[in-house]
Design a protein around this nucleic acid. Sequence first.
DNA 1: GTCTATAATTTGATAGAC
DNA 2: GTCTATCAAATTATAGAC
Lengths: 184, 184
Amino acid sequence: MSTKDKILDAAENFIRTQGFNSFSFRDVAAAIGIKSASVHYHFPTKDDLGEAVTDRYSANILASLEAEGAESTAPAIRVDAFIGIYRGALKDARQMCLCGMLGAEIESLGDPVKAAVRRFFQAQENWLASFLRKTHPEQDDEVARARARSAVAALQGALIMARTMDDHSVFEDVAARIRTGLIR
Amino acid sequence: MSTKDKILDAAENFIRTQGFNSFSFRDVAAAIGIKSASVHYHFPTKDDLGEAVTDRYSANILASLEAEGAESTAPAIRVDAFIGIYRGALKDARQMCLCGMLGAEIESLGDPVKAAVRRFFQAQENWLASFLRKTHPEQDDEVARARARSAVAALQGALIMARTMDDHSVFEDVAARIRTGLIR
DNA sequence: GTCTATAATTTGATAGAC
DNA sequence: GTCTATCAAATTATAGAC
């Protein structure tokens, strides 16, 4: 793996576990065995790094949804693919969604990072709303949008609560209700 | 107002808008027109300050619920009081729930602050679960708990999304669905 | 591309005068 | 209780050697 990718991996991990404002270039460098000046070579400023991490994250999530939850797949599978993205990070590494964390800290971020986080949430809402319009063609678009927003919000909040309480059952309780709500 | 209270107010505002790791003792001091050494006099360490802010916040929320959403009140009013606490901060000052922010950043916090945040979420879940057991005595306790957790999670996520998208309608869409879900 | 070295600033925290 | 002064460490970031 290239140094650039290693930097992105380390930075993503720091953001998702501790937040954007509680790690330094030295932390990233130390995590992958280089010096902080080398990190600056690849990403001049912390905002540059944050923007790159966020853009890559968004693209990865959308690609994963296209792979596991493509339009041809059955509705229940598509919903499980969506929820599974949130569950995976929690289970494997006790991580937040990158954009859930950045969204909480949004007021402390530079404009390019802010915009990248916004695009992520818009894409999430759009994916779920599009899914719902397909499975419930009789429903108003505004209802689909409200249902989509509610599901994304609940998943983000479930990650916060499950991590805080150190109890995965919080996430599973919420996920089960979202799943039913989206499929019914 | 005492200096101590002014410090708590300023710190709470910083945490709820920017997060715990993006403000300093100097920021707090400057916000209320004193010097950082005076802040240290009242709260020796940043963890001490964080713990005090969180404990005060929890107590205030519970008191507010007891005032506006007491057990004698009608169910719809009680639910509105609960949701109104989250809506208020967003509407008035574009703020997160203090413990939603700290919950996201939980891994970067000291143990006393962590514990205080946990107590808040437990209290929120307990309040709503107790409400649901009263309004739906026929339902299992585990169902009430799952419904309570889901509502709190959705509200926390709704604050993140509404702030990120700079669009209060995100919160209102989620809040309307939570309200219906809790009252039905 | 990665390093050493360093600048300029900020941070959490303390000592001691008033 | 609040201040000035200060510390040691950490932070973002850059210059220049290799």
